[in-house]
Deep mutational scan, measured.
Amino acid sequence: NQESVVAAVLIPINTALTVGMMTTRVVSPTGIPAEDIPRLISMQVNQVVPMGTTLMPDMVKGYAP
């Protein structure tokens, strides 16, 4: 099972992602793959992401799977 990126904290809208904001977990449905965390650093979320929420591609500005 592939791990997906999950919010480790509440991430406010338009916040640039940092390593500490993200964790990984096997979830269903799957979100952004864990191995993409290095690509996500400094990208901004386009909505509020509650802690424990799986990051989906459409939540991150400029992210393309």
Rank of each mutant, 00 (worst) to 15 (best):
T53D: 05
E3P: 05
A8H: 14
P38V: 06
M56V: 10
V60D: 01
V5Q: 01
M21N: 11
Q44I: 12
R25V: 05
M22D: 01
P50A: 13
M56S: 08
T18W: 06
M59T: 04
L10V: 08
R39E: 03
T23R: 08
N46Y: 06
V9K: 14
S4I: 02
Q2H: 08
L17I: 05
K61G: 08
S42H: 14
T15Q: 07
M56I: 09
I41K: 05
P33C: 12
G62K: 05
V27K: 06
T15Y: 10
G62P: 06
P65S: 13
I13Q: 12
I13V: 13
L40C: 15
V6S: 05
N14L: 07
N46D: 06
P50T: 14
S42W: 12
A7M: 03
T23Q: 11
D58I: 14
M21I: 03
E35D: 08
T30W: 13
T30C: 04
S42Y: 10
V49E: 00
A34Q: 11
T15E: 13
A64I: 06
G20A: 14
T15D: 08
L17E: 00
V48A: 09
S42E: 12
P65I: 09
S4A: 03
Q44Y: 10
L40P: 00
V60T: 02
T53C: 04
L10M: 14
P29K: 06
G31V: 06
A8I: 06
M43T: 13
G62I: 04
Q2M: 11
T24D: 02
D58K: 12
E3T: 05
R39A: 11
R39S: 08
I41C: 04
P38E: 12
V6Y: 03
I41Q: 14
M22E: 01
V19H: 15
T30A: 10
P65V: 11
I41L: 15
R25F: 08
T23A: 07
L17Y: 01
P38W: 07
V49A: 03
S28T: 14
A16L: 08
P50G: 07
N14W: 14
K61L: 08
R39I: 12
I41R: 13
N14I: 02
Y63K: 04
L55T: 01
Q2D: 13
T54I: 06
V19N: 13
N1S: 15
I32N: 01
A34V: 12
I13T: 06
T24V: 05
T18L: 10
M59L: 04
Y63I: 09
N1T: 13
A64E: 09
Y63D: 03
T15W: 08
M56H: 08
M21P: 00
G52N: 14
T24Y: 11
Q44T: 15
E3S: 04
N46C: 05
D58V: 15
E3G: 05
M51V: 12
P29E: 05
M59C: 03
V45W: 01
V5L: 04
A34P: 13
V26Q: 12
V19K: 13
I13M: 12
R39P: 02
P57R: 11
V9W: 07
I37E: 03
G31N: 01
P12Y: 07
G62E: 09
V48K: 14
V48G: 14
D36Y: 09
I37Q: 13
V45E: 01
V6I: 13
P12I: 03
M59H: 09
V19Q: 09
M22R: 01
V5P: 01
R25K: 10
